[in-house]
Design a protein around this nucleic acid. Structure first.
Lengths: 110, 110
DNA sequence: TTGTTATACCTCGTTTATCTATGCATAGTA
DNA sequence: TACTATGCATAGATAAACGAGGTATAACAA
């Protein structure tokens, strides 16, 4: 099923912070991880991810460092900061509040 | 809690179709109903609702008719059409798929 | 009666997250 | 040698919702 892309707005940061809280990753890897875990409900593109990563570094939520892969290819890895972990906690709560509110309005009490 | 408004994008049509599937309503009433049911997590404004209602009528999802209240005040009531009910069904499914996907990525299996 | 608040509808311009499209470069493979 | 996958990046387009403003009537208090 292809879902309305507007629905995904506002949730992307939550997804990124979530996967990075488990493991440090490089951008291209995050895309694969998020798409795979969602069973391809999400089809995140580079044009979406990279600008968000840069903004998050700028906001102090993430740190990046360069590393070479086994093959010698350059990769830019990201790790979550303490501030990022706080953001994640807040965004998780926000997600619960939001979905709870929608479910109450549409009559799907959880 | 005030939630990030970007999160609500894409879900507004679902909310409107849902409340109208239960009962015919006028615009101002829908706002009160949606805000109240969500415990004010949503604070929908007229500037958001009215253009969407007009678009939905235009798309054949809703029909409107004028009626006077007990006090003699004019109101524009809306009712959902057969096409609107189909849309609602599709959007409910989309909502389930979307929230399921987010929950899998962030590690909150339902 | 005059002012204020709640009800009820409407529109226009702004905001902003994400997407599309495009670019560059390297590694692996057919 | 050409194509595909990997890996990073940016610029412009899109579109949903909001903010701010408008009009008009009803109810109520001063």
């Amino acid at each position: 099923m292809t879902i309305n892309k507007e629905l995904t707005k506002g949730s992307t940061a939550l997804l990124i912070l979530s996967v990075l809280s488990e493991q440090e990753m490089y951008g291209y890897q995050m895309i694969g991880e998020i798409n795979r875990r969602s069973d391809n409900v999400f089809k995140m593109k580079e044009g979406t991810l990279y600008p968000i990563l840069h903004a998050m570094v700028n906001d102090g939520l993430l740190e990046s460092y360069d590393a070479k892969s086994e093959t010698g290819r350059d990769r830019k890895y990201y790790r979550i900061t303490a501030a990022g972990s706080l953001q994640l906690k807040a965004r998780r709560e926000e997600w619960q509040v939001f979905t709870g509110a929608v479910n109450r309005v549409i009559g799907e009490e959880m």
